[in-house]
Write a protein that binds this DNA or RNA. Structure first.
Lengths: 340, 340
DNA sequence: TCGGTTTACGAAATCGGTTTCGTTTCAGCT
DNA sequence: AGCTGAAACGAAACCGATTTCGTAAACCGA
């Protein structure tokens, strides 16, 4: 037979389609061990697979999770995607992905495209500029924000414990003898993550009575680099410690320092966020605040599943889950760049 | 109204559901400019969005493209994903992604999960071990292989023009004065890509009358590195040139060379495949065979779309498209590591 | 003016599952 | 035996679009 339908299976097994459906979804309406076995045998023998579209239509459930990522070039994002994929698969769900490439318009378009496709829930690593649209989406279906929140609040958010990680890096630099610290950021990146890290940084400095500041590199290589040189010169002889607020800033920092020579100027210590592969290699190893991407992904999917279950179970508007900010601890990889 | 259905729109516009459907899919059966406008107005006003599941069921088309990636940590893969996402979106399709993590079992599972979900076609960057399953899948729906072919053949394959890229790297090294060349590979990687590059490498050497060989690093850091040291020592004083067969091998090479100092031993030249971000930084810039990931992605989606159209259009088994191997030219980024 | 095509559109079947609402059967209890 | 309640299952409605088929009106050339 070209295409088996549930009624064919039912006929073959001598039961009704309803019973086969119950079997497929192992529903509470129990069935005899014998009929169960008979249906199983027929399905096994014929290699029958239920048509997802039909199932989706009637049950208005797709087992699809939409994922919108801001920047897949960022290893954080790709690690996240792998984690999400695994966690979703473990729950029998597939991922529909869209990449916004840090373009708000594309992000908005992805939002509607995924919702129109009927995803059960949405994971959004927003690039910003769509707070209203995201809030609206969250009103229509479960949404969990990944790494970057939106102003509104009211939506679940899963991030690393940035304050702790910042403290860890400051620790490492201080222990390595740095007397003044700079947190390097980029002008173009005004994300909540960057802001949170910057705040935590200044808080941490004042808590410890350390000198330092947040240095924003303007975009466009040359200017940013000269700005950096300046910062380094300013502190020359004062045991400077640098923290790159993310992996991209760290790369730019590396390029800038390259002209000063392959190893760090005496007394200069470096640390960075995001555990990129090259962190093991550059400067003989850079001390890194590593995020636990797998754990983050797992929590995101877990949380989303909870919400999806609530939506499909609850009748009224009661029993809503209160929005949470879930923080996943990361850890510090101490490497050569902060050895004494 | 809670959920608008097409019949509601039809009633509101004073036409039949069939006409609204024609409007939604702008079908050949033309309609009056006036009714078109009336329908458009109602849809606009009500914010109606057709239910994808219903549409999928009836038309047995989902506008979904399944993507299975072997290793998302590889920047090649993430760049590819971004390209695929963009190309698919341009055709009104969404991506369903699965990450096999180079695990054959997961790949097989992803294969059936995506097919069951009803994707219109499949892009597979296989990790190997599922040739039969993939060939079977290709018999049931359009499949395009990405970067890695399978033995069978008979399935479309899109790759870079590896032979040309190998020749380009050999060129660069020869021009930089290298007298003996090594292509560094890893034992665990027995992919067709690696084999093709290795073949092209030896062909190219003999064509030019250059000395050299393929060196396979055994896996597990220590042993691989000692093997590399050996290779380097063997050729000491003979102007050695090294080519890393891919970005991961290059990273390991870098670690191994780190103990020899931050800059290259005199006379040692290096080049690598895959334009990773750190290639700009390490050794002051590494000459790289860069693949045109965007072009590859575009061709993959284009080819898949062709096949999908053929499937949904053609009645009989006639008019099949012959399988093709499409090669996309890349280019060589000359950097400091191969300057004279 | 009249047969023959198009064109614009509607009625109803259809896609293939799930879900609701019975109905039958049978064990357990009085 | 008669009653009750639960367990096992079937009949038929249903999800919301698309698609086929048919028809009335408009158009067109002779």
């Amino acid at each position: 037979m070209a295409h088996m339908r549930i009624k064919d299976i039912a006929a073959e097994a001598g039961v009704s389609p309803a019973t086969v459906s119950r079997y497929l979804n192992n529903r509470p309406g129990q069935m005899t061990e014998e009929t169960r076995a008979r249906i199983a045998e027929v399905i096994e023998r014929t290699g029958y697979r239920p048509r997802a579209a039909a199932r989706n239509l009637r049950s208005s459930r797709t087992n699809l999770i939409g994922v919108i990522l801001a920047d897949i070039a960022n290893p954080f994002s790709s690690a996240m995607l792998e984690g999400l994929s695994a966690s979703a698969a473990a729950r029998g769900c597939s991922l529909m992905t869209a990449i916004s490439g840090n373009d708000s318009a594309k992000e908005a378009e992805s939002l509607t495209r995924l919702i129109d496709a009927g995803v059960d829930g949405l994971v959004v690593n927003t690039c910003g500029g769509n707070d209203a649209a995201i809030a609206a989406a969250a009103g229509r279906l479960p949404v969990v924000l990944l790494d970057r929140g939106i102003e509104d609040g009211g939506i679940d958010l899963v991030t690393s414990n940035n304050r702790e990680l910042v403290a860890g890096l400051v620790d490492a630099l201080a222990a390595a003898g740095s007397e003044r610290l700079c947190l390097l950021t980029e002008a173009s990146d005004d994300s909540p993550v960057r802001r949170e890290r910057a705040e935590a940084f200044t808080d941490e400095l004042s808590r410890r009575g350390l000198a330092g500041e947040v240095v924003t590199l303007t975009d466009g290589g040359a200017e940013g680099i000269s700005r950096l040189d300046e910062a380094i010169r300013d502190y020359a002889g004062k045991k400077l410690g640098l923290i790159a607020v993310n992996g991209l800033v760290f790369l730019r920092l590396t390029e800038a320092l390259a002209q000063l020579g392959p190893s760090l100027p005496a007394g200069l210590k470096i640390a960075t966020f995001d555990d990129y592969p090259w962190n093991h290699v550059l400067f003989g190893g850079v001390t890194t605040a590593a995020q636990d991407t797998l754990a983050i992904a797992e929590r995101v999917v877990e949380r989303l599943s909870e919400r999806i279950d609530v939506v499909t179970t609850t009748v009224g508007e009661a029993a809503r889950l209160a929005p949470k900010h879930i923080e996943i601890p990361g850890h510090i990889e101490s490497r050569a760049s902060t050895s004494r």
